[in-house]
Nucleic acid binder design. Structure first.
Lengths: 174, 174
DNA sequence: ACGCAAGTAGAGTGATCATTCTACATTGGA
DNA sequence: TCCAATGTAGAATGATCACTCTACTTGCGT
């Protein structure tokens, strides 16, 4: 069932986001997914795969929450992206990026690294397209990453700082 | 002995930086510290304290590597800070900030959170002072955090982007 | 009705690992 | 010279935990 797969992925994402990657036992993950241990292992054959399934789910949710239905005017889209990243941090994650956290928890996993790079590459390229700042894709990524990591420390002030950096960048590009 | 304490802290920092916070067993940490298990536990009474000792050591090393002996001219100091952060990433850390990684590995530790905040607050305030951009401390923190997280993905290009953001920021502040 | 496909519940297993404990070695000061 | 402090080496211990297995239930197509 596709139902089962997405129910499990969503539950896993919630569990890892709330409690980190090290702490939850597979039995905790089973509770979060709302299925039996046997079924959980049928759809997701190891704990490492549970991490990947959770991140796959988050990737999709993040992209649609940040980039769907942005304003057409590039200046407005830029501010809106940073505002949405701030709101994402406020409601979904109290501490940093879940992809970086997963890699930090298991730095030797090549699959995890690959997923992180795919996620960030897509975020950067969509941001470049929506803001019309294609010549400054790396700068946009730096701002988004910085906002994400600074949020747990500075809160809303980080989003305001990101917007000001976006304006400064646009001006300096002429 | 003060010797023993700093030898142990340095070894622990090396081990956690190389292999993450989850993987190394206490016996691995003992090997990295170069002492016996008994002595290790005498100076650092639990694995959680070993993480804190490693981070304390890193905090000092990071501050002195990034901020010691900066140029007096604010423009030059700004570029130099970003260049040094890039060089730190290149030689010390392949993936992200060790403090964020530690918090991600154990999100419930209040001591770890406190240490992260103290570290970032000091980085931000020293950067603000050295660059003469005291009015934009949060922007500086966003750039440094962004550079640190984007480095594993973009490499040296992240440092160049950070420098351009620094210039744009200085211009926009008039 | 029936039987299979797919689910639940939860006990068992084997490995790993933080922490403690026992036994021994060294060293420097009185 | 002796002892007390501080170190090394590494074997128990006890808990946790990923993963497997057994036994039972349910719903659907024919």
């Amino acid at each position: 069932m596709a139902d089962m797969t997405s129910k499990i992925s969503a539950g896993l994402e919630r569990a890892f986001a709330a409690r980190g990657f090290a702490e939850p036992s597979v039995e905790d993950l089973r509770d979060a997914a709302g299925v039996s241990l046997r079924t959980l292992y049928k759809y997701v054959p190891s704990r490492a795969d549970m991490v990947l399934a959770a991140l796959e789910n988050r990737h999709q949710r993040y992209l649609s929450r940040i980039f769907d239905g942005l304003p057409d005017v590039p200046e407005d889209a830029t501010d809106e992206i940073f505002a949405r990243v701030g709101s994402w941090m406020a409601t979904e994650t109290s501490h940093g990026c879940l992809f970086h956290a997963a890699v930090a928890a298991d730095p030797n996993s090549a699959r995890l690294r690959a997923l992180l790079e795919r996620h960030k590459a897509e975020v950067a390229s969509r941001a470049a397209a929506a803001t019309g700042l294609a010549a400054a894709e790396t700068e946009l990524l730096v701002i988004i990453e910085g906002l994400t990591q600074a949020w747990p420390i500075c809160g809303e002030a980080a989003a305001e700082a990101a917007k000001r950096l976006g304006h400064a960048l646009r001006i300096s590009l002429g």
